[in-house]
Design a binder for these strands. Sequence first.
DNA 1: TGCGATTAAGTCGTGCACAACTAAATCGGA
DNA 2: TCCGATTTAGTTGTGCACGACTTAATCGCA
Lengths: 152, 152
Amino acid sequence: MDQEAHHAGEQGSLLLQDQLCFALYAASRSVTTRYRPLLQELGLTYPQYLVMLVLWEEGSVSVRELGTALQLESSTLSPLLKRLEAGGLIHRERRADDERSVAVRLTRAGADLREKARTVPLAIGEAMGLTPEQDAIAKHLLRLLTENVTRG
Amino acid sequence: MDQEAHHAGEQGSLLLQDQLCFALYAASRSVTTRYRPLLQELGLTYPQYLVMLVLWEEGSVSVRELGTALQLESSTLSPLLKRLEAGGLIHRERRADDERSVAVRLTRAGADLREKARTVPLAIGEAMGLTPEQDAIAKHLLRLLTENVTRG
DNA sequence: TGCGATTAAGTCGTGCACAACTAAATCGGA
DNA sequence: TCCGATTTAGTTGTGCACGACTTAATCGCA
């Protein structure tokens, strides 16, 4: 299919272009780069946008729940949330019933931002240029891969 | 197929779990996390490993060529290469015929590391747990997506 | 009921990743 | 041949991402 026929040794190949991991890494960065100008208009970075997606969906969640949903450590989320709070989009407070937990909730400005974000997923979907079938297959395989890699 | 049937609005959905971009982002991080302990034995990070793959394949390349192959900016590569050089795996020198370019080449230690790295791709491939067919489909879709997103 | 184990959030240090910029070398047309 | 435009690396500043660690609160069982 491609230029050469080294299919035989592809499994253990050290060639960059044979590596699924590199295709994955390059694709992920290309997508966040594509998001950047769109999200800049909302004053968000890509990981901040993901946090906002969870909050728009769930309303109020703990840092721990955010970490579970996004598969991110608290050491990544804490500074990120601090920046969102400084930007006036979220509010944080210790939970009364369990003071180890911190509840994260949207401010009015954070909730309002949802409307401006509505067009983003379609714009990105269009830029990715996959058919609905390809999109579904890709999601399926990526989730399967993540599941396997994380468990192993 | 999954729990709920919001397939109708999936294209423009703001739900985290509908987003291909999130599946991609999570998968990419899960893979590099899986690589970490393996590469730690070689004294490499994941992006450093990718640079070494190119050098093992090509022998000697300019910073620019590395950037093209890995789709990374010189502002990412320069500090990374400085660390690889400090670790004794590569050497850098200005090209005589074009002093704007810097040639990156392996040291003996860097070339020798290739043998220790041989088992890595298979171990990762196994952890990803995709069939050869699934692996090929995933690579195809990710390259297509990257192509589309980068061009657009 | 008290105290060791667990859990939650956060800090710190290292290393990407990229935009914006700088400096130096090379190119190419008037 | 000369000088403005382009090319190439590299620096700086910001923001992830994660491991290792700290602190404080809660849990659970002897």
